[in-house]
């Protein structure tokens, strides 16, 4: 495992993404609320570009005491990204597939040294 230079941290604005190739791997690097997250860009479903789709807050539902719905809402505390091929939705913080948490994208560690961002792979 070696640290590979990716980019200057100043080139990453909050909400930006970079898709990089490292040998035979493709990695999507996200910057969300000041933190970096990196996952394999190959969707677990059919190998689509998982990290290149929509980023969207998790949709949750308000339930009344009798368990009837009081409406849906965006939960800003959770952030998801969606594979553009068939809509597999992943948790940005863990890489888990939202509908089945047992499925996980390969996660890569990101190291920031000063203004430089490195991926450990």
């Amino acid at each position: 495992m070696a640290e590979q230079f990716v980019s200057k941290a100043s080139e990453f604005k909050d909400g930006d993404r970079q898709i990089i190739r490292l040998g035979e791997q493709e990695i999507g690097i996200f910057k969300h609320e000041g933190k970096f997250y990196a996952y394999s860009n190959f969707c677990l479903h059919q190998g689509g570009p998982a990290c290149e789709g929509l980023t969207i807050a998790g949709v949750k539902e308000h339930l009344r005491e009798d368990k009837t719905s009081a409406g849906l809402y965006f939960d800003e505390a959770s952030m998801h990204f969606v594979c553009p091929w068939h809509g597999y939705e992943y948790d940005m913080f863990t890489g888990e597939q939202v509908a089945d948490r047992k499925l996980k994208l390969k996660k890569y560690e990101i190291v920031q040294k000063g203004d430089e961002v490195y991926v450990v792979a």
Binding site: Q4, V6, K13, G15, D16, R17, I19, I20, K31
Partner: peptide, 9 residues
């Protein structure tokens, strides 16, 4: 590292 795409948020 080869940067393939940059996607602005």
């Amino acid at each position: 590292v080869e940067i393939l795409r940059k996607i602005s948020g």
